[in-house]
Lab assay of single mutants.
Amino acid sequence: SGEEFIAMYTYESSEQGDLTFQQGDVILVTKKDGDWWTGTVGDKAGVFPSNYVRLKD
Rank of each mutant, 00 (worst) to 15 (best):
residue 7 A to T: 01
residue 20 T to C: 13
residue 38 T to A: 11
residue 3 E to W: 05
residue 34 G to F: 06
residue 22 Q to D: 11
residue 12 E to T: 10
residue 3 E to M: 10
residue 55 L to G: 15
residue 37 W to M: 11
residue 26 V to C: 07
residue 53 V to E: 03
residue 45 A to V: 14
residue 19 L to V: 05
residue 47 V to R: 13
residue 43 D to W: 04
residue 34 G to C: 06
residue 41 V to Q: 11
residue 54 R to C: 10
residue 4 E to G: 01
residue 43 D to A: 12
residue 48 F to P: 06
residue 19 L to I: 08
residue 38 T to L: 05
residue 53 V to Y: 02
residue 33 D to P: 02
residue 49 P to N: 06
residue 16 Q to L: 14
residue 56 K to I: 05
residue 49 P to T: 03
residue 55 L to T: 12
residue 42 G to C: 06
residue 5 F to K: 01
residue 45 A to L: 11
residue 53 V to P: 02
residue 57 D to R: 04
residue 29 V to N: 05
residue 47 V to M: 10
residue 27 I to L: 07
residue 37 W to F: 12
residue 5 F to P: 01
residue 4 E to Q: 12
residue 5 F to W: 11
residue 34 G to P: 07
residue 56 K to H: 08
residue 10 T to E: 09
residue 40 T to W: 14
residue 7 A to P: 00
residue 56 K to R: 08
residue 13 S to F: 03
residue 17 G to Q: 04
residue 35 D to L: 11
residue 54 R to W: 10
residue 12 E to N: 09
residue 46 G to L: 02
residue 38 T to D: 03
residue 34 G to L: 05
residue 52 Y to G: 00
residue 17 G to F: 02
residue 41 V to D: 15
residue 39 G to Q: 00
residue 53 V to G: 02
residue 22 Q to E: 07
residue 21 F to I: 05
residue 25 D to L: 00
residue 24 G to Q: 08
residue 35 D to A: 12
residue 45 A to P: 01
residue 14 S to N: 14
residue 16 Q to N: 13
residue 24 G to V: 00
residue 55 L to C: 03
residue 40 T to S: 15
residue 22 Q to Y: 04
residue 41 V to P: 00
residue 16 Q to I: 10
residue 17 G to W: 03
residue 47 V to I: 12
residue 14 S to P: 09
residue 5 F to D: 02
residue 10 T to Q: 08
residue 44 K to M: 15
residue 52 Y to N: 01
residue 29 V to P: 04
residue 12 E to H: 15
residue 20 T to E: 12
residue 28 L to T: 11
residue 51 N to C: 09
residue 29 V to K: 03
residue 18 D to W: 07
residue 10 T to H: 10
residue 26 V to Q: 10
residue 51 N to E: 10
residue 55 L to I: 10
residue 4 E to F: 07
residue 23 Q to V: 12
residue 44 K to F: 02
residue 47 V to T: 06
residue 22 Q to G: 08
residue 3 E to A: 06
residue 37 W to N: 02
residue 33 D to M: 11
residue 15 E to C: 09
residue 40 T to P: 02
residue 56 K to M: 15
residue 47 V to G: 09
residue 35 D to N: 06
residue 49 P to G: 01
residue 36 W to H: 06
residue 47 V to D: 11
residue 11 Y to A: 04
residue 17 G to S: 11
residue 34 G to N: 12
residue 45 A to K: 05
residue 45 A to C: 13
residue 20 T to M: 08
residue 55 L to P: 15
residue 47 V to F: 05
residue 44 K to T: 03
residue 28 L to K: 15
residue 33 D to F: 06
residue 43 D to R: 10
residue 55 L to E: 10
residue 14 S to E: 12
residue 33 D to G: 05
residue 3 E to G: 05
residue 46 G to P: 00
residue 42 G to A: 07
residue 39 G to H: 00
residue 5 F to N: 04
residue 18 D to N: 10
residue 24 G to R: 02
residue 57 D to N: 15
residue 14 S to V: 13
residue 40 T to L: 07
residue 43 D to L: 10
residue 10 T to C: 04
residue 18 D to Y: 14
residue 17 G to L: 06
residue 12 E to M: 09
residue 46 G to Y: 00
residue 2 G to V: 08
residue 43 D to M: 11
residue 54 R to V: 15
residue 28 L to F: 11
residue 30 T to Y: 05
residue 44 K to I: 01
residue 32 K to I: 03
residue 14 S to K: 12
residue 20 T to Q: 09
residue 1 S to T: 14
residue 54 R to H: 09
residue 57 D to V: 03
residue 20 T to S: 13
residue 57 D to G: 14
residue 50 S to P: 07
residue 15 E to N: 15
residue 6 I to W: 02
residue 5 F to L: 04
residue 29 V to R: 02
residue 24 G to M: 00
residue 16 Q to S: 13
residue 53 V to S: 03
residue 36 W to L: 11
residue 36 W to D: 06
residue 39 G to E: 00
residue 11 Y to Q: 04
residue 37 W to S: 04
residue 21 F to P: 04
residue 45 A to F: 03
residue 55 L to W: 09
residue 2 G to R: 07
residue 6 I to H: 04
residue 39 G to W: 00
residue 35 D to V: 09
residue 43 D to C: 10
residue 21 F to K: 04
residue 2 G to N: 15
residue 3 E to C: 07
residue 54 R to S: 04
residue 51 N to W: 08
residue 57 D to L: 11
residue 1 S to F: 13
residue 19 L to D: 00
residue 28 L to H: 15
residue 12 E to Q: 14
residue 12 E to W: 12
residue 43 D to H: 14
residue 19 L to N: 03
residue 32 K to S: 06
residue 30 T to G: 04
residue 30 T to W: 12
residue 38 T to G: 09
residue 50 S to G: 10
residue 1 S to V: 11
residue 53 V to N: 01
residue 49 P to D: 01
residue 11 Y to L: 09
residue 27 I to D: 10
residue 23 Q to C: 12
residue 32 K to Y: 04
residue 56 K to T: 11
residue 54 R to K: 04
residue 19 L to R: 01
residue 40 T to V: 11
